[in-house]
Design a protein around this nucleic acid. Sequence first.
DNA 1: CGGGATCCTATATGATACTG
DNA 2: CAGTATCATATAGGATCCCG
Lengths: 103, 103
Amino acid sequence: MSLIDGKWKGVILYHLLEGTMRFNEIRNKLPSVTQRMLTNQLRSLETDGLIERKVYPVIPPKVEYSLTERGRSLEPVIRALKDWGDAHRDLWPEEYGSQTLVR
Amino acid sequence: MSLIDGKWKGVILYHLLEGTMRFNEIRNKLPSVTQRMLTNQLRSLETDGLIERKVYPVIPPKVEYSLTERGRSLEPVIRALKDWGDAHRDLWPEEYGSQTLVR
DNA sequence: CGGGATCCTATATGATACTG
DNA sequence: CAGTATCATATAGGATCCCG
């Protein structure tokens, strides 16, 4: 769980299933993510060996992100999550409120 | 993701796939969870409509937890996570360190 | 037995400004 | 374009004690 925890990791991995993407490409798929958070989540995924970060030494910068083999092995998990989300999108959040834990 | 986020929710749901369980039964499956956290996670799952909490008005107290239909619909997700964990248990955490995000 | 109350720390996330 | 740096808040999680 800790590997895909984080507000954006799941969605990032999902989009990367489609293929390699550049930083701003990913960003455009995640309307409300801040630059800092996207960077953080990407770094975390990289550290955990799920994605690869490829930097092209050009100006302006160009950085590509892609799934590693380990990352791709998560595909069944990501798909299962996506499928569930699609199937239950309409039942939420009316009936059930997403919880803010603790206290 | 927000529904199964939380340090213990995934494992709790997994164990509940086996059937109804009492509070301390669940607790015994989660060696290092504190009472407060277990209660919190269970309450959160309940609020999100994934589990049902059944209180028997007896002394000493008896409380049973079970999956709702909505909770059971998550079975493919839970199984996928479990399968991945089983398959990759041996590759961790030597090669990849679980990240502590930010800063 | 299955909690609740209180206090505390660590961490995730956000806003904003700056940069090679 | 793809970040860093800094500051701030919110929330998760833990420790401990009490209770009918």
